[in-house]
């Protein structure tokens, strides 16, 4: 018998999930379920379960759409945001949540990501960022750090990595944040705010892949990889209280940028309304 939360929001007949032992994806999927549960049970401003749509692409992360028991769609590689855009345009009142990976989101689907961000279309994109293509055997992805090893970079990765949260901000996203596996409670709160946010929101959640990325780069097992997150990923308030010296090598987690740019479907509805008004005259 799994927990009530798992019973409520996951497809039990699909569980246990097939991710590797210690994979961070299971924790992030749980964070999403807890965040949604807390929003549904928010006494002041609850959201309707039937208004939630989970969209995923292809990759380890994207299996989450199959496990989560909501209106969900598992789409083609890199196109989760494209499908999600269609769903949001057809029915703007829906909370469309895209679950994607670093490769799916920033390589194969990189164009969809930047243009949905630029338009400020009201989607919530949660990127399970494990720095590698896990499902296909450990090839380097756009977020694999420079110098790190992968099956396709046996002597070290020559590329410089994307910072997906900053990429989204640069492309015009009105909400961009970073979370991780270790800081689960903080990440749940960030995901809640991202879902509540009206415009395009992106949460770059640092996952861990002990099987490929960890093993290839001698990062140790899941526990050691989470210890790295504990030591080096610093929640916003503490980060800003640290000296420049102490910040060296550390990364900030929390909400990184926030704007109230006009949301795309609302602007689109205004155009429709003005055309209808003009036609009546």
């Amino acid at each position: 018998m799994p927990s009530d939360l798992v019973h409520l929001y996951m497809r039990i007949d699909h569980l246990p999930q097939i991710w590797c032992p210690g994979c961070g994806n299971g924790v992030i999927m749980h964070d999403v379920a807890v965040a949604i549960d807390e929003l549904i049970h928010d006494e002041e401003n609850s959201i309707n379960r039937e208004d939630i749509v989970i969209v995923s692409g292809i990759g380890c992360s994207s299996r989450a759409a199959g496990y989560l028991d909501f209106n969900s769609i598992h789409t083609t590689h890199g196109r989760a945001i494209a499908f999600a855009s269609g769903i949001k345009m057809a029915n703007p009142k829906l909370h469309v949540i895209v679950l994607t990976g670093d490769g799916d989101c920033s390589a194969i689907g990189g164009n969809h990501l930047i243009h949905a961000a630029r338009r400020n279309l009201g989607l919530t994109v949660i990127c399970f960022n494990n720095d590698i293509y896990g499902m296909t055997g450990g090839q380097y992805s756009p977020t694999t750090p420079n110098g790190d090893r992968a099956t396709t970079a046996p002597y070290g990765n020559v590329d410089r990595p994307f910072d997906i949260a900053n990429l989204a901000t640069g492309a015009g996203a009105s909400f961009s944040a970073r979370g991780d596996v270790y800081h689960a409670r903080e990440t749940i709160d960030i995901i809640k705010q991202a879902i509540r946010h009206k415009g395009f929101s992106l949460v770059d959640v640092y996952s861990i892949c002990p099987t490929y990325y960890g093993r290839k780069n001698k990062k140790g097992d899941a526990v050691e990889m989470l210890n790295w997150q504990k030591e080096n990923l610093i929640p916003t308030a503490r980060y800003y209280s640290m000296s420049e010296e102490d910040r060296v090598g550390k990364k900030i987690i929390g909400i990184l940028s926030f704007n109230d740019y006009p949301e795309y479907t609302e602007e689109y509805a205004k155009i429709i309304a003005s055309c209808r008004k003009a036609r009546k005259k």
């Binding site: 927990s3 569980l15 246990p16 999930q17 994979c23 994806n25 299971g26 749980h30 270790y182 989470l226």
Partner: peptide
């Protein structure tokens, strides 16, 4: 519970 990837 929060950090178990397998809901075990």
């Amino acid at each position: 519970e929060l950090r178990c990837p397998d809901y075990a």
